[in-house]
């Protein structure tokens, strides 16, 4: 796996290989060593989970963003998509849904929407996420897309989330949340944008390097493993015996 900066939540799915190549070349040009292409379950076409060619110089991961209003159905989605992707993100919303998301071991990242009254990160969710090692997404794309009052509210919400994440030691993932390649920003730009809501440079770097790498490493089987729990034993050891 390539070590370096990761933008784990690129929410645009390139239509063909040429568009994918453009996305990867732009991400490399901006200074990223890896990226995660997110597909949403509420997409009208449905997620296409084809495996992508692994580039030695750029780590491209497949992710799934689960949109489900009913907390009871969330688990079935998680079980269905978990083996097919490199990481799973759950889109929160209501308190019940957020709590259901942080109570499973399948969730890697919790993404919370902005501007929904009566929802958001609270101390209960933050503690649960911290206990289970679930990361919290800090999407600075909303700071790029929005202007005026909406951006003001977004910054306030991000400040609140940062305060809770620091207090309960929740892992943080800093993302651009790009809907198109023109929404992508370089790592230094994302650090500067994260500084607007009080995230320090060290926290922002960790949220783009260590945390995403740990999330991807968790699901990728180390060399020699055929599947979870099954490792190909070294033949030489047996021949010597």
């Amino acid at each position: 796996m390539v070590e370096g900066y990761y933008d784990l939540c690129i929410r645009c799915l390139p239509e063909d290989d040429i568009a994918m190549e453009r996305l990867v070349s732009l991400a490399k040009h901006l200074g990223f060593n890896g990226a995660g292409i997110m597909q949403a379950t509420n997409n009208s076409k449905g997620p296409t989970l084809k495996s992508r060619s692994f580039n030695a110089y750029f780590d491209l991961a497949n992710g799934i963003e689960i949109y489900e209003d009913n907390p009871a159905k969330l688990h079935s989605h998680l079980v269905r998509y978990d083996p097919k992707v490199n990481f799973v993100m759950v889109r929160g919303g209501t308190d019940k849904l957020d709590r259901a998301a942080v109570e499973t071991t399948y969730t890697d990242i919790l993404s919370l929407p902005f501007g929904i009254k009566g929802s958001g990160l609270d101390h209960v969710i933050a503690r649960s996420a911290s206990d289970r090692g679930i990361a919290l997404e800090f999407d600075v794309g909303s700071l790029i897309r929005y202007r005026g009052g909406k951006r003001v509210h977004t910054i306030t919400e991000l400040e609140q989330r940062l305060m809770l994440a620091r207090k309960f030691k929740v892992h943080m993932v800093l993302t651009s949340g790009a809907r198109s390649i023109y929404d992508m920003r370089g790592p230094r730009e994302l650090i500067a944008l994260a500084g607007l809501f009080g995230m320090t440079k060290e926290e922002a770097i960790k949220a783009m390097t260590v945390t995403p790498a740990a999330i991807l490493k968790k699901r990728r089987l180390p060399g020699g493993f055929i599947m979870k729990g099954v490792e190909l034993a070294n033949e030489r050891i047996y021949s010597e015996e």
């Binding site: 929404d183 920003r185 730009e189 994302l190 650090i191 944008l193 500084g195």
Partner: peptide, 11 residues
């Protein structure tokens, strides 16, 4: 850093 952030908000 502030200038960089402002330039990053241009879309």
């Amino acid at each position: 850093e502030r200038s960089r952030a402002a330039l990053a908000t241009i879309n």
